[in-house]
Design a binder for these strands. Structure first.
Lengths: 209, 209
DNA sequence: CTTAAAACATGAGTAATCCTCATATTTGCA
DNA sequence: TGCAAATATGAGGATTACTCATGTTTTAAG
């Protein structure tokens, strides 16, 4: 980033839109940003272009987003909210090892499909490591998702060490995200193999020794 | 990045220094960049600052590096060369499962130690996902390192499917790098637990079902 | 040694981009 | 109706990656 002194603060709306009009405009801004990221990636996304495509002035953009990263962050947060709901729902009913294997495999497929199909999600989670706020959002998201796993594991293996379960679930989840990122950056066929290998590896770990 | 039209080309020296004098100057430039990255991270590193600290003009900097990322890339490449030598040496003599477990554990410890101790390495491999050239360097490095593992595995399990071994080794290696990145971004104690968990998980996978 | 070409060095200037802010307009409400 | 708060605007400030015309040093052939 240039033009900014590498600000380390967390990104958050400068001012929440309180009127109907401005709420609609903020939506348009996010939609424009999303389209531009899909086309060129968030790095190449220009604030002027976002404003123009949303049909607002550059000043209006900064009325609701303190800086460029805040826009990306806002989009990323929506994905986390949506996916957490999906994950929670998928894992909620699991009560035995067979069910866990089924649900986990399903989740991995869904995630992999999203990474393959959604250029915005792809772009955002790829750039995750470079941006502090995004990294923290992903970490928090990952922990939250791991919690759902942990809840299931504690039901299935009530005698296991809780700390070990925590560590395992968190690691498995993060490995999954890393595996996805890797899979989409190689040839499709190899990517499929890698995801399948991850699935086996993770399940073996989750289902106990 | 601003001021540049999001160039997607690979970074490479604009001109290789051929004289003694310029070779020394290039070394000073890299040393200056390394120090600045250690202090503030590669994102906050300013080209003018690199030049100043190296005691050269901004023009000289661009005489040998086509752009900012090329400097980071050059530093990253040195790490890969060094680490490949280390990995190759550690894995070369392995001839049984016990030896593999020993060598692998040792390598993980070395890597983790480097990530903890070397802010430059930490910074560079963290930002890896955002920069295309860096991502490709890391992928190539990871594949090369996985090759060493594959060679060992083929010796230990000559009957196994070669493609499956390739996939496993590559995945395990990438998971390792992801685990390190994760480990250094959480509290030290939890990081240690995560690395240990990864070690167990990876070894179980490498040593066969 | 001479000399021409190649390599190297310089830094003021260019261009691109993020973001601010003074000013104008619209909306909600007493 | 009128006023305060919210919203809208876009020219311009500020920063920074990178260029290029010009000058200097090194190399090596004659």
């Amino acid at each position: 980033m240039e033009g900014t002194p590498a600000n380390e603060q967390i990104a958050s709306p400068r001012r929440a839109p309180s009127q109907q009009r401005s709420r609609e405009r903020v939506e348009r801004m996010l939609a424009a940003a999303s389209a531009l990221i899909a086309e060129q990636g968030s790095d190449a996304m220009r604030m002027g272009e976002v404003a123009e495509r949303a049909g607002v002035s550059i000043g209006s953009l900064y009325q609701f987003f303190p800086d460029k990263r805040a826009i990306v962050w806002a989009l990323a947060e929506r994905y986390t909210v949506e996916s957490q709901a999906c994950i929670s729902a998928t894992l909620a009913g699991v009560s035995d090892a067979e069910g866990l294997a089924q649900a986990f495999s399903e989740l991995v497929d869904i995630y992999y499909g999203l990474f393959l199909a959604e250029p915005v999600m792809r772009d955002i989670w790829s750039g995750t490591q470079a941006d502090k706020a995004l990294r923290e959002l992903e970490l928090a998201d990952s922990r939250a998702n791991a919690e759902f796993l942990i809840a299931v594991l504690k039901r299935l293996r009530p005698d296991a060490d809780p700390v070990a379960l925590d560590t395992t679930a968190f690691l498995v989840w993060q490995m999954g995200e890393a595996a996805m990122r890797l899979a989409i950056s190689v040839e499709r066929q190899e990517g499929d193999r890698l995801v399948a290998a991850y699935k086996r590896m993770a399940l073996r770990e989750l289902l106990g020794k």
